[in-house]
Computed example of a mutant assay.
Amino acid sequence: MSYLANKIVFITGASSGIGKATALMLLEAGAKVFDFSRTHQLADELSHPNLRSFKGNVGNETDVIAGFAACVEAFGGVDVLLNNAGIGVLTTDLSSTELDTFEQMFDVNVKGVFLCNREALKIMKPQKAGHILTVISMAGQRTNPNAPVYCASKFGARGLSSGLADQAIKLGIKVTDINPGPTDSNYWGDRQVPREKFLKVEDVARVIVFVLNQPDYVLIREINFDNMKFLIP
């Protein structure tokens, strides 16, 4: 049995990577997908009656408010928010890291999650139902000397999500953290990394769909997972 049919899912960054893989799986399961992306929109390459796209930046309050309004206008509401958009930059030498680099990551990874959570809650609270998921990553639990600012932003997102979970459960709203290990996506750019040991974006998407396909009374607070090859020295 699928619990996803006709669910309205608002996804940030659904135009590529984990977001795109998840959007495609949700559409196949019968969900209605609203893609909120900063650059390329999924609807530019895929025509589907249950897909809408909106160009916006999660770190911009005006864009986020307009995006949720557009989703409500298109589909009639929001049942699920998937905070997927994220940005990561290496900061191997903190003493030479520019403030702009810090602010870019916190604008997307923390401020963006806050803004989207806030607007989703305005819709979900009257419904007394809803589900907010955030793709945080294991970087929100274990630090990395090459990316301390990125880890800090993910620790922040995890703290925000955990605190929200305690509030939201009283409202009938579920909150789940999705924490994959290193994943083979555009995040890595041209960096020389062992991609063969990483998770695939489809692996992460399947976990997200699994969580969303649970009955309303089943609450999964957090899922941590890695590619076993990455963990073996």
Rank of each mutant, 00 (worst) to 15 (best):
M1N: 12
S2Q: 15
N6W: 13
T12L: 09
T12P: 11
A14M: 06
A14D: 11
S16Q: 13
G17L: 02
G17E: 03
K20M: 10
T22P: 11
M25W: 14
E28F: 15
A31Q: 06
A31D: 09
K32Y: 06
D35W: 02
S37F: 09
S37D: 10
H40L: 08
H40Q: 08
Q41I: 10
D44R: 02
S47N: 10
S47T: 09
S47Q: 11
L51W: 04
G56H: 08
G59H: 06
E61W: 04
T62M: 13
A66P: 02
G67Y: 05
A69V: 07
E73D: 10
V78K: 02
V78C: 06
V80A: 04
L82I: 12
N84K: 10
T97L: 10
T97Q: 11
E98C: 13
D100T: 12
F102P: 05
F102V: 14
Q104F: 02
M105K: 03
F106H: 06
V108Q: 03
N109D: 11
N109Q: 09
V110N: 06
K111F: 10
V113K: 07
V113P: 01
F114D: 10
C116N: 12
N117F: 11
A120H: 05
I123D: 07
K125H: 09
A129W: 14
A129C: 12
G130V: 08
I132E: 05
V135M: 12
I136S: 07
M138C: 13
A139N: 08
A139L: 13
A139M: 13
R142K: 15
P145C: 13
Y150T: 08
Y150R: 03
C151F: 05
A152Q: 07
K154M: 07
S161T: 15
D166P: 09
A168W: 00
L171P: 00
V175H: 04
D177E: 15
P182K: 01
P182Q: 03
D184V: 00
Q192S: 15
Q192V: 15
F198I: 02
K200W: 02
K200N: 05
K200C: 00
E202C: 02
V204T: 03
V204A: 05
A205H: 07
I208T: 09
V211Y: 08
V218T: 11
L219R: 14
I220Q: 07
I220F: 15
R221A: 14
R221E: 15
I223S: 04
N224W: 04
N224R: 09
F225L: 06
P233C: 04
P233H: 05
P233L: 03
